[in-house]
């Protein structure tokens, strides 16, 4: 297997990120900054699952940004690739499907990492967070990037126009993240709403990542690990399969 093909696709993803830094890095950091500013004034004294609200909010904001960045990274990159027929260049080079998928996902992870570090640095103006469980931070962060990066790939393959991607972001991704417990503990919700939330995968990522920082959870930890793992594994497997059969790419 030509490992360098993988390396150069990742390199190109990073280069693309670098040339579009003002669109990809600053907006999520600025919106995180705005959320923090507003909530730190308004809800300063509110305590949520045993932590001051600002501290409660930070992991949610980072996870939200990571999910969005991963999804945007793969979906836009691959869609543009289809649009400019770049994908046809890649598909004529000795690049395996596994390599291609992993390169896009690594691109998504790196982009999310850069954005998240940016947000983390900004939050230091408001709270100095403690880190309770490093493994949980790493696990949930990586899985979120891989899952939503993979969803981005599927949608980029499916989409025929840029608007399709926008529609998915507006009607699917944003509601899921907004209702995924970034801004509130689900225990503050009516019981029926809590039950529905348990079907929202974003909730497990936010809650698990928060567990990594604060050491406290909102929902059942074991179920969270299982749900996120199974969901991610099946989605990645589907992406590799779809790439292999050339779904929506090879007719």
């Amino acid at each position: 297997m030509s490992r360098t093909s993988f390396a150069y696709i990742v390199k190109r993803e990073l280069y693309r990120l670098y040339t579009t830094l003002s669109q990809s890095l600053f907006p999520p950091i600025i919106s995180a900054l705005l959320f923090l500013t507003i909530f730190s004034f308004v809800l300063k004294d509110k305590s949520t699952i045993g932590a001051p609200f600002t501290e409660f909010l930070v992991p949610g904001l980072i996870m939200m940004a990571a999910i969005n960045s991963s999804f945007t990274s793969t979906s836009f990159s691959l869609f543009l690739s289809k649009w400019t027929k770049q994908i046809q260049l890649i598909l004529t080079t000795p690049t395996s499907y596994l390599e291609l998928v992993s390169a896009y996902l690594v691109g998504a992870i790196l982009r999310s990492l850069i954005v998240s570090i940016g947000i983390f640095l900004v939050t230091l103006f408001f709270v100095v967070p403690s880190i309770a469980h490093v493994w949980a931070l790493a696990y949930y962060f990586l899985l979120a990037c891989i899952l939503f990066g993979s969803i981005g790939i599927i949608l980029a393959l499916k989409a025929e126009t840029f608007e399709h991607l926008g529609v998915v972001t507006t009607f699917f991704l944003t509601p899921l993240t907004m209702l995924g417990g970034v801004f509130y503990s689900i225990k503050d919700l009516p019981l029926w709403f809590q039950k529905i939330t348990l079907f929202n995968p974003v909730f497990y990522f936010v809650d698990g990542f928060r567990y990594g920082l604060l050491g406290a959870t909102d929902g059942p930890l074991g179920i969270g690990i299982a749900v996120t793992f199974i969901l991610t594994a099946t989605t990645v497997a589907s992406v590799v399969y779809l790439m292999k059969i050339g779904w929506k790419v090879k007719y």
Binding site: S2, R3, T4, S5, A7, Y8, I9, K11, R12, Y15, R16, T19, L80, T84, K85, Q86, Q88, L89, I90, T92, T93, P94, T95
Partner: peptide, 28 residues
Amino acid sequence: FSPQEENLDPFLNVEQALHFTAGYYGLK
């Protein structure tokens, strides 16, 4: 392969287009 419809990478310049393609082909 040189396709009928051009498929150059809009993010890259001439030199980079060659550089990255060589990379995709696994050259050292």
